[in-house]
């Protein structure tokens, strides 16, 4: 369980997060949606402890960061480090001695190749694979489907569901609503740094329709394509 109480964050005069309070339970998958700049990544960085904030973030396993796998929106890879070495690096950082990486290469990545030469989707898959070797209890997956092919997307969805079955807490953001519908138990809509809506699984269809009405119809109407 991760509990966020009254968390606020500001960059200069700009309030990026305003009094966010959410409780993420074990064995559940949570989606965070919002427009670009709504504060999703900042919220994730606050949870990970990579940003200072006002308010309180606690978890049943402490310190939270030592049990958290954080998939960044745009994972960074050192030059001249292979996929296998990257996995080793992340596992060693959490004192995990891993064997037979190749047999657990679920995305069939070319692990002997330098990771910085991978495509966007391959980088995302490698970063996710490395997190799975760490044995974390909590996962934050920031845009895990970014640039990923259809087969791998299905695999990622299955992995997330397996993590739920293993009683892990998964928090993810995605701009593809169908993936959130397939994975999540609850969705939080973040708008201008505030939780605008909290939606349970039964109402996902309604939320999708609302988003289509509020965003697409309005903006496309203004576009006046000929």
């Amino acid at each position: 369980m991760i509990a966020i109480k009254q968390v606020s964050k500001r960059y200069g005069n700009k309030e990026v997060l305003q009094y966010i309070s959410i409780q993420f339970e074990s064995g559940k998958v949570y989606g965070i949606v919002g427009e670009n700049g709504a504060g999703k990544t900042t919220l994730f960085r606050c949870i990970a402890g990579l940003e200072e904030y006002q308010g309180e973030i606690s978890s049943d396993l402490s310190p939270l960061k030592n049990h958290l796998g954080f998939l960044l929106t745009d994972p960074f890879f050192y030059k001249k480090i292979t996929g296998e070495e990257y996995i080793q690096l992340l596992a060693q950082a959490r004192n995990k001695d891993i064997q037979q990486i190749a047999s657990k290469n679920i995305f069939q990545l070319p692990l002997q190749q330098y990771a910085d030469t991978y495509s966007t989707g391959m980088k995302k898959k490698l970063a996710l694979t490395a997190l799975l070797f760490q044995g974390n209890q909590y996962f934050i997956l920031d845009e895990p489907y970014n640039g990923v092919d259809i087969q791998s997307s299905m695999l990622i969805t299955e992995i997330i569901q397996q993590l739920r079955r293993l009683n892990k807490t998964v928090i993810l953001s995605s701009h593809i609503f169908s993936t959130l519908k397939d994975c999540c138990d609850e969705i939080f809509v973040l708008h201008e740094g505030r939780i605008q809506k909290h939606v349970e699984q039964a109402d996902f269809g309604k939320l999708e329709q609302e988003m289509i009405d509020a965003t697409l119809a309005k903006h496309l109407g203004n576009l006046q394509l000929e």
Partner: peptide, 18 residues
Amino acid sequence: HFRAFPTPFSNKPFEFTA
């Protein structure tokens, strides 16, 4: 498409490997 150049530092990958 090249395989990575082997190094004696790969078991603790980071600064020295790269």
